[in-house]
């Protein structure tokens, strides 16, 4: 393969920019109502179960806990266009906790970036849907992730570029609470405040679990809100399964000037499936065919 001269993902940009299409026309996503989003959330949960069960591996727990956050972003808040994933004016979503890839793929498919049928190729050899997100393979995926702790730094770069290019897009980053153990998260946290990045909103999925156990037992991150606050962030606490609270918080974040905002979203790992909730076995293990059947019964 010859060395790449440019980022292949940027190629679509020039074309769309020169076409000079208005933002409204490009942004084909119609904002869903809360009721519609609740239905969508259930659909995404069903996808997560069937995808991981079919793949036989993957991370259902941390995918299920972030469902409402992603639903609010992709189906109400963000300006984006599935027909032009590289639209230069799009809002960006960076999935820092890259193991929640099944959820992101499900949302991208429901939004129209990918055929729904493709979801069942998750983790297969040759599939565009890699076990952890890969920006070179999947339309709509902004960042290659899977090694925790790197997303916020990447988002800073995107956010600074908006400033340089006088663009008004916003950048959203989803972090895990276990992920906040990583030092790089705090290097980035400091930098966000330093650069006064008010076009950047971070959301931490506070499901209080990581792999080895509860975060308070493995590596205590409390007081988490005070930490972010002392790093110069506006903090907002929400119930991470309550769509109107999430929408309000995302809206409030847009109004805050001169500093970044973090939404601490209190969630339940494995949310929506009784036997997966708060069950560490489903962090990194897929449901069996039987378990998937039971889960889908609960999700109808």
């Amino acid at each position: 393969m010859p060395p790449q001269k440019s980022d292949p993902l940027q190629e679509g940009d020039a074309a769309s920019a020169s076409a000079n299409i208005s933002a409204e026309a490009l942004s084909s996503q119609k904002a869903l109502s809360i009721d519609e989003m609740m239905v969508m959330a259930k659909t995404l949960r069903r996808h997560i179960i069937t995808m991981t069960a079919k793949a036989g591996s993957g991370h259902p727990g941390g995918s299920l806990s972030s469902v409402e956050i992603i639903t609010a972003l992709y189906f109400n808040v963000m300006r984006h266009n599935p027909r032009n994933p590289n639209w230069p004016d799009r809002d960006r979503f960076v999935l820092s906790k890259g193991h929640a890839a099944p959820l992101l793929y499900a949302a991208l498919a429901e939004a129209g970036y990918l055929p729904i049928e493709e979801l069942e190729t998750l983790r297969e050899y040759g599939s565009r849907l890699q076990g952890h997100t890969d920006r070179t393979k999947t339309p709509g995926v902004e960042m290659s992730a899977g090694a925790l702790g790197q997303g916020l730094s990447f988002a800073i770069g995107i956010s600074l570029a908006a400033r340089l290019d006088s663009k008004d897009y916003r950048v959203y980053v989803l972090l895990g609470d276990g992920e906040c153990d990583e030092g790089q998260v705090w290097e980035a946290a400091m930098a966000c405040a330093h650069f006064k990045l008010d076009n950047l909103t971070a959301i931490v999925d506070r499901n209080r679990q990581q792999i080895d156990g509860w975060t308070k037992d493995v590596m205590n991150t409390e007081p988490l809100e005070e930490k972010w606050h002392s790093f110069g962030w506006q903090t907002i606490k929400v119930d991470g399964h309550n769509l109107s609270q999430i929408l309000n918080a995302l809206d409030e974040a847009k109004q805050i000037k001169g500093k970044p905002t973090i939404i601490i979203a209190y969630t339940t790992k494995g949310k929506g499936v009784s036997f997966m909730e708060n069950n560490p076995d489903f962090h990194g293990n897929a449901p069996t065919a039987r378990e998937a059947e039971k889960a889908l019964e609960e999700l109808c």
Binding site: A55, G56, G58, G98, Q130, G131, H132, D134, S144, G146
Partner: peptide
Amino acid sequence: VGEDGFSH
């Protein structure tokens, strides 16, 4: 590690 992909 297989299915986890290149990050792992």
